[in-house]
């Protein structure tokens, strides 16, 4: 579904991503790990077609995503409907008067049918039906994150990109999110720090170094055994304990 080959991205003259290459197949659940400032958010924005690489190619379903290609409004429309990105700060994605209008914004914009049913279904899943009439700017951080997630999921995207989605969520909502990501068939790429939570749904771990390069790409078990695991600040014992029980038991 996604093919990245030799992508370099610079912010002014500062490198943010260097020689990034990987493919993600349809339905794959990938996790993006990396220290602060390694370029995770930039990579997600790039995949969402909001930033463009300085060098290298990015193909989505075999078609190169470039500034020029996205000038074709028909193509852009289809692309934006398929790819949904949750920003690190959910606050900035919300710009409608009420929660209902916020969630129904995408479906209305992209001409989907049964809007009300879709909105109620997704609101019910996130436990925010009581908030539907409330103005978004009066919600708490966690509630805003749920509204943002609901606004993305209502679009039934093919590729869901999440940038630290659990930062504002409580444990219960984190668990719902993990279960959802595991169950649903859409492709996901989630940037996050907590490897133990990510392990629950992540089939594949892509790890960025602070030098902005990919240093690992593979399943969790292999990542756990690699020397990188402890280098990145994760504890093997904790990981074993997690495997045996806890809220995210497989």
């Amino acid at each position: 579904m996604i093919e990245l080959s030799h992508i370099d991205f610079y912010f002014d003259k500062r490198p943010v991503l260097l020689d990034i290459s990987f493919n993600i197949e349809e339905g794959e659940k990938a996790v993006l790990l990396g220290p602060n400032g390694s370029g995770k958010s930039t990579l997600l924005k790039l995949i969402a077609g909001l930033l463009f690489p300085k060098r290298g190619k990015y193909l989505f379903n075999g078609k190169e995503i470039s500034k020029k290609r996205l000038k074709d409004k028909k193509f852009e429309r289809a692309f934006r409907k398929d790819v949904q990105l949750m920003f690190q700060e959910p606050d900035i994605m919300l710009f409608n008067p009420s929660v209902y209008e916020e969630i129904s914004y995408g479906p209305l914009r992209f001409g989907m049918d049964n809007i009300k049913e879709r909105v109620l279904k997704v609101a019910d899943f996130w436990g925010i039906n009581g908030l539907l009439k409330r103005p978004v700017y009066l919600l708490s951080g966690g509630e805003k994150a749920k509204v943002a997630l609901a606004s993305l999921l209502v679009m039934e995207p093919r590729l869901l990109l999440l940038d630290e989605p659990t930062a504002y969520l409580d444990m219960k909502s984190t668990k719902s999110l993990c279960k959802l990501l595991k169950k649903e068939r859409f492709t996901t790429l989630v940037a996050m720090h907590d490897v133990h939570i990510a392990r629950y749904f992540g089939e594949r771990f892509i790890v960025l170094s602070k030098e902005h390069r990919i240093v690992f790409d593979g399943p969790f078990d292999r990542f756990k055994e690699s020397s990188l695991f402890e280098e990145f600040g994760f504890f093997k014992e904790e990981s074993e304990a997690c495997l045996k029980g806890g809220p995210y038991e497989r």
Partner: peptide
Amino acid sequence: ARAEDTAMAMKARGFFLY
């Protein structure tokens, strides 16, 4: 930073399509 990110988020959600 927020203005730049908001512009991107609006774009991602189809704000400028029509």
